[in-house]
Write a protein that binds this DNA or RNA. Structure first.
Lengths: 162, 162
DNA sequence: ATCATAATGTTATAAAATAACATTTTATTT
DNA sequence: AAATAAAATGTTATTTTATAACATTATGAT
């Protein structure tokens, strides 16, 4: 089971998460001959600022703040970058939150399950074949052919249980 | 496994679904001493008009059309009924679609999984303990304590595969 | 250098959801 | 039954989320 849950909820050097994510993104875009432009990269870094999913307008606000002196980044710009990053599988959308989060292992097979802590707001991603198998099996009993899945679990992360 | 998938995707006498749902709702509200007012009932019936999830503004439009002669039902009214019906477990929200669907077995234990057909738009609900067990197990490997789950599967229903 | 394509800037608007307060309806108390 | 409290609905305005449409700029290919 591929997961970043050992990191996401716990104290860690988050700068390393960011640089690692950025490196993966650059390599992946290079391979695919698509352009990780400065704006797209800035949106990506903003989303990766933490392990908490961020709404589109949170991204707009953050980017406007972090841009000197005051260059307003407008919603269409952010949405376009989001669209690109989603297409490339570099980020995910959590539909139960209308929010976006960086993918810790882009390019891999994805059987996405998100574990969202209602206390601290952090979300970890798991790629659990076992769970996907259960989904497919459940669906097959209804003769339903699975194409994609949205699995978002809300509860308490290990830190917030203590 | 409790499911309405044998009905939802297939040709059937949908009037019976509606009256059955309405009867269950009345009994349930009576038991709980909460009021299924005319407006709430109208919203409920509008949602139950088919097995396709309906957006809040679709409900507004439908109700405005079906009200004679032209009595505009406004969004807050609809949202308040939706809130009530959600609280009572009479409908569910599909967050991947921003839409609402009637619950075929309210009052029961709910381990909700929705199977949404991308072709015909119909959605069936399954209450699959097996799948919930897999969710809990996956989460437990991350020491995550599950409180609620959103599982929405998109694919092709049996009818639309043919 | 020229052209086509892609990306971004900009303005406006659509779509989804809720806040705030007025009014009406229903239930409760006297 | 009248008075009161509580719940539900009506109404206006606004917030939040997302996209359409078109202008401009940057990038890559010929």
């Amino acid at each position: 089971m591929l997961t970043n849950s050992r990191i996401a909820y716990h104290h860690h050097d988050h700068k390393r998460c960011i640089t690692a994510a950025l490196n993966r993104a650059r390599v992946l875009c290079d391979d695919r001959q698509v352009r990780l432009t400065p704006i797209r990269e800035a949106v990506f870094k903003t989303i990766w600022a933490s392990h908490r999913p961020l709404g589109a307008y949170d991204i707009v606000d953050q980017m406007t703040l972090s841009t000197s002196p005051v260059k307003r980044i407008l919603p269409p710009t952010v949405y376009r970058s989001i669209e690109f990053l989603l297409e490339q599988g570099l980020i995910h959308r959590l539909s139960s939150l209308n929010a976006y989060i960086g993918c810790p292992f882009p390019g891999n097979q994805h059987n996405d399950v998100f574990l969202i802590c209602r206390q601290c707001g952090s979300a970890a991603e798991c790629s659990a074949e076992q769970l996907t198998a259960a989904v497919v099996q459940t669906a097959s009993r209804a003769n339903f052919k699975v194409e994609s899945q949205v699995i978002e679990i809300v509860g308490l992360c290990p830190e917030c249980q203590a």
